[in-house]
Design a protein around this nucleic acid. Structure first.
Length: 108
DNA sequence: AATGTGACATACC
DNA sequence: TGGTATGCCACAT
């Protein structure tokens, strides 16, 4: 068990439904530290090593922008994965973002 | 041990 | 209306 923080982040990210997305801020908030959105991003950075299957592509910044796409195998990987799930993306930004955004607290 | 960094967010100028 | 500054906390060096 690494830091509980990471564990929680991963747990939430893993449960993001297909075709849905969420934000770093929401995850941070769900964990209990609304101001720690950066930690979520940090967890993502480490995730691709420890949890390759983690759908990090479903996590975007508050603007619905694919801020972390450059951290994938190749920049367009993130967008392709999302589009493959039915998410519309234009200019690296998620369309209908507010409609497909997934709030973990709604499920719990 | 201390300092720096980061796939963010919010507030302020 | 947009850039700058600061907070946040774990991890890397």
């Amino acid at each position: 068990m690494e830091s509980d923080f990471f564990e929680k982040v991963y747990e939430i990210v893993k449960q993001i439904p297909k075709g849905r997305v969420t934000t770093y801020g929401i995850i941070a908030k769900t964990i209990g530290s609304p101001q720690s959105a950066r930690m979520v991003g940090w967890a993502m950075n480490a995730s691709h090593k420890k949890y390759p299957d983690l759908p990090a592509h479903r996590v975007v910044n508050r603007n619905g922008l694919l801020s972390g796409k450059m951290h994938f195998d190749y920049p367009d990987k993130m967008q392709q994965l999302l589009e493959n799930e039915g998410v519309i993306i234009k200019n690296d930004k998620i369309q209908n973002f507010e409609k497909i955004i997934w709030n973990p607290m709604l499920e719990f």
